[in-house]
Nucleic acid binder design. Sequence first.
DNA 1: AAACATAGGGACATAAATAGTCCCTACAAC
DNA 2: GTTGTAGGGACTATTTATGTCCCTATGTTT
Lengths: 344, 344
Amino acid sequence: MKNVLSLQQKIVPEIIELLLKRYKILKCIYYNQPVGRRALSQELDLGERVVRTEVNFLKEQGLIEIYSTGMTVTKDGEYILESLEEMIHEISGLADVENKLKKILEVHKVIVVPGDIDEDITVLKEMGRLAANYIKSIMSNDTIIALTGGSSVSQVVENFPKVSKENILVVPARGGIGRNVETQASTLAAKLAYKIGANYKLLHVPDNLSREALGTMLNEPGIKDVVQNISKADILIFGIGRADEMSKRRGLEEAEIEELLSKGAVAEAFGYYFDKGGEIVYKTPTIGLDFKDVPNIKHIVAVAGGKGKAEAIIATKINNPNMVIVTDEAAAKEILNLQRVNKR
Amino acid sequence: MKNVLSLQQKIVPEIIELLLKRYKILKCIYYNQPVGRRALSQELDLGERVVRTEVNFLKEQGLIEIYSTGMTVTKDGEYILESLEEMIHEISGLADVENKLKKILEVHKVIVVPGDIDEDITVLKEMGRLAANYIKSIMSNDTIIALTGGSSVSQVVENFPKVSKENILVVPARGGIGRNVETQASTLAAKLAYKIGANYKLLHVPDNLSREALGTMLNEPGIKDVVQNISKADILIFGIGRADEMSKRRGLEEAEIEELLSKGAVAEAFGYYFDKGGEIVYKTPTIGLDFKDVPNIKHIVAVAGGKGKAEAIIATKINNPNMVIVTDEAAAKEILNLQRVNKR
DNA sequence: AAACATAGGGACATAAATAGTCCCTACAAC
DNA sequence: GTTGTAGGGACTATTTATGTCCCTATGTTT
């Protein structure tokens, strides 16, 4: 049989939360027995009533006993507690990792997909699907979605479920034509719009323009309109890349790449390059989303996976508490590793 | 690690139900695809809305796809379905058995405790605990509980949880003094009453009285009162015994026992002996609960376990659709066996 | 011995999830 | 075209979970 737990993750994902909650409570009673309901709820940071409901359940199951002096774990309970330990470790792996990353990266939510993007291509798809589902859940009528290019975002679009909201607008976050037409922001914007029956507007502007050219472009009416829409975006979907890879892929000149890297750039996201400290060290000369607008966007979804992306994910510091990161187990664990090393 | 599933049964039993429900739905879609929501809900005997909720979930998880022609299971879904099969068999063992028994025995509910009463003494306790919990859930103020003697009922009393209802009355279902004072109906009634802070009344009448003596007794005011209470009982708790064992234990004379068995008696419950067909072939001459009152009692809980009791459980036919049977795995499986043999 | 702290249980209002129901539009088969 | 069945939307009713506060019992401190 395939691993029971991963199967259950798929068909009854609620099990994780419930199991964890009950385990936590049982363990807490065990370590503090005899203990009262209120002391417990404080210790566990759960509502008093919630604790009570669960405590009643545990009593029903004969795992604890309740006296007027407090609650104690029965022999059965101890046995269960012991047996559960192993299972919990296995299960809580990801849930735990998600919570840790949430704190480390200071974001609203982290979604970790089991597996490694570099070893299993379906992991990327799963990332896309989960990101898409999340995005669907936050969409409402009249939402403006801005997105970037890249293979990760491409999978988000590819796995987008049907949506029935009205007057959705999809725009590329920034101008710029990548090598691969299939994963360009414009292509993806159009594809997503088509999939969910939304409108879309495109920015037909190459990357790496001169300042003068940019200025001129910005005054073009067709472009000005799109740029304004972008700045009003409600949802931003973007991938995170490694600075070294992205600078090449975006066709920067050798000299520029060298300068970029010598400045310590390790991450790239929507045209901005970040160093390890999260400082912006370079900005791709094109038009579209301005970094100063980013902190105000209601929902930001970053999608990136693979061990190699860990550093870049950490470096991409966007001061937006609403950010959600969708990544894979490999990247997640590597981020935790790097963090541990840094602490020493 | 102890078996994951039995652990989960103990700590998150709700999830198992959920798992079963979803599996059932997924499987049903698979065999009928493409199929509509309403057809499904009819097939599965679930509310249309319930099906819808679950179907949405399955879609979210990517296990099914929804088209305007109906729902189909995806490759992922098929894989899950296949992998789940084994797990379901293991899990649903008892749940399934419970349902089958419910139909075979034509009762309101069957509770099956894993294990064999004859091999593991804790199984008997567990049966008692579950029966007691069930009884607690149906108790209200002013409830009258009638119970018989026996080791099974004794465990129900022993494992009774705290109850805070008012004006509960506990009475023995029938008069009669057994060999073992500890498990006599009178003793148990008193013990239960003490445990839950209820009142009790006793019937001090030996088994096997002559007709004349019975008539006399029935006119005694102290006894008349108790008998009236018994006939108004809201809950009846009783054990089921084998006719051969019980007739000896109850101290019948050799000749009577032979007559009894030659009449085909296989089961005994609250003083009545039943043959295989569920017909009453003998009645212990004592006073108390009358069989004609039994079909009208609101709640009847029978407790009996062990392979040897299977035949007796089948034979004890009480025409009361509210009956609940608490038994063990050994008896349950044997009942299914006997049933299969009978069909041939 | 009295006062106090903390225990579990009861009760009730309210929030949230779930289920029942009915209607609508789309699509496929006849 | 007509018809039957599909899924989705939307509203209501019902059940369940939660927050809150109060009560009494019990063990401990003063």
